[in-house]
């Protein structure tokens, strides 16, 4: 199981702040996870479309497209930050 956390605008768009998912065996990286989530269609395909600015963190560290995702990881999806 992987925990996916949605923050700020993405939480509003998806209507949920987090979910636990069983990822298919071939979904082992950030890029693969985004591709998999896009197949849900609708707002998922829209918000996560390539070209949209989506940032990803794995276990509280900023992640890249190639960052691996494994069992019990916490993956967070969020828009570019606007603090300060």
């Amino acid at each position: 199981m992987v925990r996916i956390v949605y923050l700020a605008r993405l939480r509003d768009a998806f209507g949920k702040s987090a979910e636990q998912v069983d990822l298919p065996g071939d979904v082992g990286t950030v890029a693969a996870l985004l591709t998999w989530l896009r197949t849900r269609g609708g707002v998922w395909a829209h918000e996560l479309a390539s070209g949209r600015a989506v940032r990803v963190a794995v276990n509280h560290d900023v992640a890249q497209a190639t960052t691996p995702i494994g069992h019990d990881d916490e993956v967070a999806l969020f828009p570019p930050v606007t603090g300060g």
Partner: peptide
């Protein structure tokens, strides 16, 4: 610290 906070710390404003 401020410049990095603005671009790297996970805060969002509504």
């Amino acid at each position: 610290i401020m410049d990095y906070l603005k671009t790297r710390a996970p805060f969002w404003k509504k």
